[in-house]
Deep mutational scan, measured.
Amino acid sequence: MQNSHSGVNQLGGVFVNGRPLPDSTRQKIVELAHSGARPCDISRILQVSNGCVSKILGRYYETGSIRPRAIGGSKPRVATPEVVSKIAQYKRECPSIFAWEIRDRLLSEGVCTNDNIPSVSSINRVLRNLASEKQQMGADGMYDKLRMLNGQTGSWGTRPGWYPGTSVPGQPTQDGCQQQEGGGENTNSISSNGEDSDEAQMRLQLKRKLQRNRTSFTQEQIEALEKEFERTHYPDVFARERLAAKIDLPEARIQVWFSNRRAKWRREEKLRNQRRQASNTPSHIPISSSFSTSVYQPIPQPTTPVSSFTSGSMLGRTDTALTNTYSALPPMPSFTMANNLPMQPPVPSQTSSYSCMLPTSPSVNGRSYDTYTPPHMQTHMNSQPMGTSGTTSTGLISPGVSVPVQVPGSEPDMSQYWPRLQ
Rank of each mutant, 00 (worst) to 15 (best):
Q2E: 10
N3I: 12
N3S: 12
S4R: 06
S6L: 06
S6A: 13
G7V: 14
G7D: 15
V8T: 14
Q10V: 09
L11Y: 06
G13W: 02
G13Q: 00
G13N: 02
F15C: 03
F15L: 02
N17V: 00
L21N: 01
P22Y: 04
D23G: 13
S24V: 12
S24H: 08
R26T: 01
V30R: 13
E31W: 02
E31P: 03
L32F: 15
A33D: 04
H34I: 07
A37L: 12
A37V: 06
D41W: 05
I42C: 03
I42N: 02
R44E: 09
Q47S: 14
N50K: 00
G51N: 02
G51L: 03
C52N: 02
V53G: 01
V53R: 04
K55T: 04
L57V: 03
Y61I: 15
E62F: 06
I66M: 08
R67S: 11
R67I: 05
P68R: 00
P68I: 01
R69G: 13
A70D: 09
G72Y: 02
G73K: 00
S74Q: 03
S74P: 00
P76M: 03
P76Q: 02
P76T: 05
R77H: 07
V78N: 03
V78C: 05
A79F: 05
T80L: 11
P81E: 15
P81S: 11
E82F: 09
V83N: 14
K86V: 14
I87R: 01
Q89G: 15
Q89N: 08
Y90V: 08
Y90T: 12
R92T: 05
E93N: 10
C94Y: 13
S96C: 08
I97Y: 02
F98S: 06
W100N: 06
E101D: 05
I102Y: 06
R105M: 12
S108P: 04
V111F: 08
V111Q: 14
T113P: 14
D115Q: 07
I117F: 13
R125F: 00
V126C: 14
V126P: 00
V126H: 02
V126N: 07
R128L: 04
A131K: 04
S132C: 10
Q135P: 14
Q135T: 11
Q136D: 09
A139S: 10
D140G: 10
G141R: 12
Y143K: 10
Y143S: 10
Y143V: 14
L146A: 08
L149T: 06
L149S: 06
N150L: 04
